[in-house]
């Protein structure tokens, strides 16, 4: 519980912050600055030389270096130069570490920009395979169904594939028997319908007749009449419901 006698409590600096910031005024030696300048100039010569050397190699040996070589070499040298400027000219090596943290976060953001840009650019081609196919209800296959490396590659919609596979396995009669039981379980009171956009979407509140041009819908069970009133000109908006 003893305090050194030399430490006097400073009311204006109760937590001793002053002692921390004392080190912020670093004076870099003149020799360091000159040395850094010399290195930077040497690296400038190096980056020019590297570009010339790439050209020379390509011309002398009649080969074409991959495109990334030019960029990677030039950017590596530039990064070294930039690091030297940041550390010694911009004094990040000596100043408050929070400044370095700010700058590194900024570079992280820069990295994210570049990463997602390159991710997009380098995978543009993959969409073509998908775009080449037709859009079909339930999908048209051409992918692996299921999980794992043994998942079969099938060229059918999943609904068709799994149905046929089950029929092949247990025979059509057993299939129908099971189906009667299973379907009764969750669709007991419905005739199965082919789902359409009209049936799937909760219609009230949507623009009237939005879907009717393409596929006139039957009113849903239970609340017919409410929002499907006949139009004033006498024509009904929808095909009559089949009951």
């Amino acid at each position: 519980m003893s305090t050194p006698a030399t430490e006097v409590f400073n009311e204006l600096d109760p937590h001793g912050m002053g002692s921390y910031t004392k080190h912020s005024h670093h004076i870099v030696s003149g020799m360091t600055l000159k040395l850094i300048l010399a290195i930077l100039l040497a690296f400038t010569a190096l980056t020019v030389g590297a570009a010339q050397a790439e050209k020379w190699v390509e011309a002398s040996f009649a080969l074409e270096l991959p495109r990334w070589v030019n960029v990677v070499v030039a950017m590596s040298i530039a990064t070294v130069k930039a690091t030297l400027v940041l550390m010694f000219f911009m004094l990040l090596r000596y100043s408050n570490p929070i400044n370095t943290i700010v700058f590194l976060f900024c570079l992280l953001a820069f990295g994210l920009f570049l990463f997602f840009t390159l991710l997009d650019l380098s995978t543009r081609g993959e969409i073509n395979e998908i775009k080449a196919k037709q859009v079909e209800a339930g999908g048209i296959g051409g992918i692996h169904y299921g999980w794992g490396k043994n998942a079969p590659l099938v060229d059918k919609a999943p609904v068709v594939y799994w149905r046929e596979r089950m029929i092949a396995e247990i025979g059509p009669e057993e299939y129908e028997r099971r189906k009667a039981i299973l379907v009764h379980g969750h669709e007991a009171h419905h005739e199965p319908t082919n789902s359409t956009g009209n049936l799937s979407i909760n219609r009230p509140g949507l623009t009237a007749g939005l879907f009717d041009a393409s596929a006139p819908a039957a009113p849903a069970h239970g609340h017919e009449g409410s929002e499907h009133a006949p139009k004033q000109d006498g024509k009904t908006e929808h095909a009559p419901a089949a009951h």
């Binding site: 400038t44 980056t47 020019v48 570009a51 790439e54 050209k55 390509e58 030019n70 030039a74 950017m75 040298i77 530039a78 130069k81 930039a82 400027v85 940041l86 000219f89 911009m90």
Partner: peptide, 17 residues
């Protein structure tokens, strides 16, 4: 910072082949 940007612009613009 102006210098820093130029360090990257120089090879990216002048040293492509």
């Amino acid at each position: 910072l102006v210098d820093l940007i130029w360090i990257f612009l120089f090879p990216l613009l002048y040293l492509i082949h």
